[in-house]
Computed example of a mutant assay.
Amino acid sequence: MEERKLDAQESIELITRMIRNTRRRLEHNAGRPFLVWGYTTVAISLFNYLMRINGADPEWSLSWFLIPALGVVLMRLFPAKKSTEPRTEIDRIVNALWLVCSLALIPIFVICLFHGWLYRTSLFMMIALTMAIGTAATGLIVRSKVYAVSGLLGMALSTLFAFNDFAMKSRFASQAVPGQEGFVALHNEILIFAAIFVVMMIIPGHIINYQNRRETK
Rank of each mutant, 00 (worst) to 15 (best):
L66D: 01
L186Y: 14
L14K: 12
G116I: 13
Y49E: 09
M18W: 02
I53V: 13
F47L: 15
D7C: 02
S45V: 10
Q211C: 02
P178H: 04
I90A: 12
L186D: 08
F78K: 01
I127G: 03
K5H: 06
T138D: 12
T216K: 09
V184Y: 07
T159S: 15
L118W: 11
L113T: 11
S174C: 00
G179N: 14
S122F: 10
Y210Q: 05
T41L: 10
G31W: 01
L97P: 06
L26D: 01
M51S: 15
P178K: 04
S174Y: 07
N54P: 11
L160Q: 06
I203R: 06
A104T: 14
S158M: 03
A128V: 00
N48L: 14
R214T: 00
T216L: 01
L66S: 10
I108S: 09
G134E: 04
T40L: 09
V199K: 10
I196M: 06
R214Q: 02
L99N: 13
L160Y: 09
V184C: 06
A137V: 15
L160W: 07
W117K: 15
A148G: 14
R25L: 09
T84M: 10
L129S: 11
E181P: 08
V199I: 12
F183A: 01
T40C: 07
M18Q: 13
L186Q: 11
I15R: 10
R17A: 13
A30H: 03
G55K: 08
A176N: 06
N188I: 02
R20P: 00
I15G: 02
K145V: 12
E2Y: 02
I111Y: 15
T135A: 14
V100M: 09
A194W: 00
Q175L: 13
R23H: 05
T135R: 10
L186E: 06
A56F: 03
A173C: 08
E215M: 02
M125K: 15
H115Y: 04
W37T: 08
V142G: 09
A96E: 00
A173F: 15
L129K: 13
M1H: 05
L153S: 14
N188W: 00
N21V: 03
I202W: 06
A80C: 06
I196R: 07
P178G: 01
I15D: 05
